[in-house]
Design a protein around this nucleic acid. Sequence first.
RNA 1: GGGCGCGUAGCUCAAAUGGAUAGAGCACCGGAUUUCUAAUCCGGUGGUUGCAGGUUCGAUUCCUGCCGCGCCUACCA
Length: 694
Amino acid sequence: MYRHLEHRLARHVLEFLRRRYPAATLPNVVMEQPPRVELGDFAIPIFPFAKPLRTAPLKIAEAIRADIGPIEGIAEMQVAPPGYLNVKIDRAWMAAALAADQRPPADIPAGKILVEHTSINPNKAAHIGHLRNAILGDTFVRLLRYAGREVDIQNYIDNTGVQVADVVVGFTHIEKKSRAEIEALAGQPRFDYYCWDLYARVSQWYAQDKQNLQVRAQTLHGIEDAASETAVIAELISTAVLRRHLETMGRLDIEYDFLPRESEILHLHFWDAAFTKLTDSGVLTFENEGKNKGCWVMRRAGTDRVARALLPATADANKTNGSDTPDDLDDLLIAIPLKPGVDFRLSGISEEDQKVIVRSNGTVGYVGKDIAYHMWKFGLLGRDFAYRKFYRYPNLHDCWISATEGEKDHPHFGDVAEIYNVIDARQSEAQNTVVEALRGLGHNETADHYTHFSYEMVALTPRCAAELGYTLSEEDKARSYIEVSGRKGFGVKADDLLDQLIVSAKSEVDSRHPQLTDAERLSIATQIAIGALRYFMLKFTKQSVIAFDFKEALSFEGETGPYAQYAVVRATSIFKKAAMDPDIFCREVAGDVSAGDFARYLAGDNADEIWELWLASAKTSYIVSQCIATTEPAYLARHAFQLAQLFNTFYHRHPILSEPDEKRKQFLLATVAVVRRELIRALAVMGITAPPVM
RNA sequence: GGGCGCGUAGCUCAAAUGGAUAGAGCACCGGAUUUCUAAUCCGGUGGUUGCAGGUUCGAUUCCUGCCGCGCCUACCA
């Protein structure tokens, strides 16, 4: 509603100025919010118009105010020095629309969106860093769906990489376990915890003797051959850990539609298809000298092509195709899985700007697989996975997994219009390389619909690390935060944190509501714990490193999820006390408050406080669109908090059920009902529900 | 060395494409309820926005340089 009105106002102002100054080229109308609600609901800075119109800002503002004429939903305009046009909304009009829950139809872009998030290596338990990823990703999915978009959720599983290999090494070489023993362990409740510890031990084992790294190489090689015993064990372990991850995320109400695995990208030869296209287009080039001799390389994203001209040694090597192939190239080609007749070029890229995609031994690196995978995402590869059902959620939603041979009937995945990859900031260079590959293939427009949803890591404060029993170097103690490391087993496990939050919330609920059954109290405590955790991960902007601290994360007061949940509970309790159903009241009664009553009770300066509550309630979809446009869910968290804060102030100042004026009481109840509805919606987009009591 | 990012109150963080008096939470101090339960509310203390220039009617925001910190920069993923 708010968003709609803002657009309408901007359009009217611009049209007015066009009529008044037909000759001038006008800048965009910028909409802001005045610092205080008394000043108005929209603020339009007029300064940018002064120069093109050769008129003082105040004069322009005055002209608009006096002559623009009536606009539906706008009550009045005021000119404010040094050059603002402040606009007040017709409060009764807006309140009536909001009470009736009118939502003007928005233009929803066509096309499916693919959001990839979580993507934890399936070799150990999920930790708080993974939680941030999954919560950001899941919230972004909810934002898109709230805005009416169709979304597929994918969780990429790197089940053939070094990390899985390392745990396989742990089981087979350190613990010397048989396949049957591993299978038995994998059936244990928190198998991922077992792997967490083992993974850290493997890292130590490598550090003890560099010779041990050869075992890793052998294991990695073994995994790629699907028929080998090593591959079977790796599959066994990674699948069991993957199930644990789905369970962990399921506790937070985070679900996936499809789990593409690296093993299928390998076995279905996605890379071969991509390789042909990449070499044909000259994106991928061959390097025949220097440290990357014998590799297929790409230009590192962000490096400048001009730089190459400064390197005389490589100038000749970039002539275009194989016609000027050096003599020794044929030898090198034997080691490379090249089809005859493939057209290729020599790289001619300076060494430091090269990104190795195919190693000289012919194996493909991570970025190469990622390029192929992203071509598939956009339907550009010409190949598809096979699919089978993997996991059924309690709500009966099925999560599918990639397979070499799958089920006949399956949903259509991939081939989407837009993608968002929730991946931490450390991988932005790799992400950019994938985008550049798409551009190089001529898919510029497609590349524009590729968004790296980049966020910073979760680290531990030195105090937190000490609490966990880690001994810190003097250097680490002086840092403001210390990076989590799965390799070292250094971090806070997701399930542990959630358990702790539940225990902590439970003791609060126990003391407040002893009359409830234990199951009821546990259910409430769980909702509170999830609310606290999800809010905590969303309140920080993406680019801020979260220095994790138990005291803050376990807090249920102040700017927290439970604070917002509590506001909903309070709103609900008013209706409960009055023996009314808040949802029914909101749907069927709130809209009956007459325009006259809205006008009366929202008029004047002393109604500003209540109006502010209505205004904030009107902003939910506006905020949602801001979050999507900026890929920043933190704005929504802030909005929910502000709504809750305004409500708590209102709740404190205005006794509602004891209000003697029956019409005013209805108005106040409508206020509560609308705020409650919008707060519940905002929280739902963050994956937070409000318990019945707190 | 190069690339990306960060530096705001004692602490943790906000501040939408540059806008009106830089805001919250925590901590600390002082208050509020026999009411729709206080996981709440009200008030107070707390700032040279790292430093120096520049652009602009206007800079926490944009540009340049410097200082400090983090991440990336592997034929790892």
